[in-house]
Every structure is written in structure tokens, then in C-alpha cells.
Design a protein around this nucleic acid. Structure first.
Lengths: 208, 208
DNA sequence: AATTAATTTAAACGTATGTTTAAAATTTGA
DNA sequence: TCAAATTTTAAACATACGTTTAAATTAATT
């Protein structure tokens, strides 16, 4: 039993790193299993298929992030019923950075996986996310709507998707961007400083 | 000779549609050539490799868009030296929509290809774009900097990349988003209305 | 019209992929 | 301890991919 969990975890650990770096379809099971130092067939044995492995990789992050984010949102709404948009978005920072404590680079890995899930796989991961975590998402959307009550719900829908694009695209190319920023402007960034940069941008855009 | 051009164009037309819809690595040469109704080997004959085909597909759009965008930016700066950020961004709308006249759906196709180029291919398309169209990009960045002279250049760098993410991610999932907006809010959008929605969002975020 | 060059074609090549199989090894439970 | 269930392993399978080859066809040139 400890052997089984160990193999599953080794696969998940190797897979999430490679998926985030290279994308789902550019990452072969042979590359994953060689990095994880397990047998090729163990992926199909433990997860059934590559598609289900992808979902398992994402679920491990979402299962931690979504409840934590929902808790933060709920807490903010109770403490400050008139919380600003920036405060709502900032409430997500702690749950995002908490992913870093599980695994070094976990925050960026999660956001990269999320972005690849939305872009690369034609809808089936989108469906997986909205069907499994719809309650948490609704909680967040409601909090945003309450913080900017004068904005039509349709506009909020669009702007939150703009925001999703901003975040996942930025995280997907965060390595390259941090390198350029260091070379051209002498900035030394990490994932948290980038998140701190993006919050005013998206808060301003959603509230415009 | 007319036969050669015809085959090349048929390949490019089929490839750009499939690349935009499904991504580069998810689109096989066999699928492209069957849709284009040409022989499989003609891709390698005319373009050398799949990688060069991808670049050719992107170049066809960039060669039209980049000079047109540069002209619009130059014109705006001459007419209104103190043009606002919204005016700068809006100057790109006409060149973007002009792509629509070449091919139906050309605007969205272009932005989707751009996004996939940045995300999917590890840097080699990014390099292709910045090295071939660096002058045009610099012109645009300079215009943005002049319109918000009080913002540090490093911040503008980050926010313009946030903006790129917003736009390409939105366009990559524009079909799904327009469907949802229609179902949930009764909105009937097209590519232009979505662009008009995104401009205040990004202008506000960059200027914040 | 004859020769040369350019293009198209069908077939094969070599490699890589996700998955399955069946035997070996290991762990579990009575 | 020993039989049963679980897990690991090596090998093979079937398929798909980008690319190359060489012959057939078409177009261009003289």
C-alpha cells in the first residue's frame, strides 16, 4: 500500500512539472515515467489513461486551492461586507502562495497548468473544472459582483475572463518575462512580486 | 508556376485554420494536406518542414498587420502628440479588423495563432516575432510610454505583457465565451464587439 | 517538338506515441 | 505461513507522426 501511494505520487510529481513546463501533449508518458523512475505501464495501471492523469494532476492543486480560496473570500465578506475589488483579489494571494509551501514553484506550476488546461485541451478540462468546483467559482464571482454592484453582470463575466487570461498567460511565460525584466531593467522578481504587479492591473480593468 | 502558388496557398489556408483551432502540435500534416486536398509530401517540398510551415502561416498575417499597425501608430502620434492610451490601443483595431477582409475570421485566427505561438512553442516563435518585427514593436512600446510618461518603463513592460495575455487568451477561447455570453446574458457578440470590450480593460490596467 | 526543370504523387522509412498483455515480484490478510 | 490480491515489470501492439525517396506527371524553356 505504501508502495502504491509512493508510485502514484512519484508519477504525479514528475507529471505536473513536465506538464507545466512543456504542455500536456508535448509531454510523453515515457518522459514522465523515466523522470519519476517508475515503469511506463504504471501510469495506465494507476490512472487508467493519460487524460485521467492530467485531471489528477490538476485536481491535486484545485482540491487544495479552491476550498482555501473560498474560505478567504467568505472571511473577507464577513469582516468587510464592502470590501474593494483589490481586497477580493488580494484574498486569493495567500491560498496561491500556500501552494508554494507544498512544492517549490507550486504557485506558478498551478497557474501554468490552469492556463494550459484552458488553452490546450478543447473544453474537456474546462468542463472538469467548472463542474467540480462550480460552487467555489460562484462564490468568487458573487463576491466580485458585490464589490462593484454598478457593473452589469455580463461585463463582469467578460472582465473576469480577461483577468484569467492575464494571469495564466503571464504565469505561462513568467520565466522568460522575469529573465527579460532582469536583463533590461535590473529587476529581480519572483512569483510573488509578479502577482503583486498583476493585482492592480486586473483590479483596475475589472472596475473600469 | 500558378500550380505551385496554388498548392502553397491551399496548404497555408488549411494550416492556419487548423493551427488556430487545435494548436500546432495537435495538428498533423496529414490533416492539413487532406483538408487542403494536396499531397502529404507537398508540405515538405514547399516549406521544408512543419516548423517552417508554422512560421510561414504566422508571417502571412504579421507581414500585413505589423506595417499597418505601425502606420496607424505613426499617424496618431503625428496628429495627436498627446494621444491617450485608449487612443493608442484603438489605433490597432482597424489593422486587426482589416485582417477580416482577407479571410473571414482572420482577426480571431491571427490572435489565436499569436497566443499559441507564445505559449505552445518554447520560445522559438517568440524569437521569430521579436527579431523580424522588432522595429514595429518598439514603435508601439514607445508610443505607449509617451502616452503615460509617469509610469516606469519596467512597469509598462509588465503591463503590456499582461495585455498580450488578456488579448490572446480571450481570442483563444472567444468561441466558447461568446456562446456562454449568449446563453447566460442574451448577448450577441462578434470579434469586434469583444475587442471593443477589452480595450477599456487593458487601457485601465496599463495606466493604473 | 524536344529537353529540361519543377511539381505532384504513392510508397516507404524510422521513430515515437498511448495502451495492453502476461508473467514476475511484492504486499496483504487469514 | 501460505494463499490471494496487488503492484511492478519487460515486452509487444497498434497506430500516428514528420520526413524522405524515387518515379510519374506537368510546366517551362529552347
Amino acid at each position: 500500500m505504501s508502495g502504491r501511494i509512493d508510485t502514484k505520487t512519484k508519477i504525479l510529481d514528475a507529471a505536473e512539472k513536465l506538464f507545466a513546463e512543456r504542455g500536456f501533449s508535448e509531454t510523453s508518458l515515457r518522459l514522465i515515467t523515466s523522470k519519476a523512475e517508475v515503469n511506463l505501464a504504471s501510469v495506465n495501471y494507476h490512472f487508467g489513461s493519460k487524460k485521467e492523469l492530467i485531471r489528477a494532476v490538476l485536481a491535486r492543486y484545485l482540491d487544495q486551492f479552491m476550498p482555501a480560496a473560498a474560505d478567504e473570500i467568505t472571511a473577507i465578506r464577513q469582516q468587510k461586507p464592502n470590501a474593494s475589488l483589490t481586497e477580493i483579489f488580494s484574498a486569493l494571494v495567500a491560498p496561491l502562495l500556500a501552494l508554494e509551501r507544498i512544492r517549490a514553484g507550486g504557485t506558478r506550476t498551478f497557474l501554468q497548468l490552469l492556463g494550459r488546461g484552458y488553452i490546450e485541451s478543447q473544453g474537456h478540462l474546462r468542463w472538469f473544472i467548472t463542474s467540480h468546483y462550480g460552487e467555489h467559482l460562484n462564490l468568487f464571482v458573487t463576491a466580485v459582483q458585490q464589490s462593484v454592484p454598478n457593473i452589469p453582470k455580463a461585463d463582469i463575466f467578460w472582465r473576469l475572463h480577461f483577468t484569467l487570461g492575464t494571469v495564466v498567460f503571464t504565469m505561462g511565460s513568467a520565466d522568460a518575462l522575469m529573465d527579460i525584466a532582469a536583463a533590461d531593467f535590473g529587476e529581480r522578481n519572483n512569483i510573488e512580486t509578479v502577482i503583486r504587479k498583476v493585482i492592480p492591473y486586473i483590479a483596475s480593468g475589472v472596475a473600469v
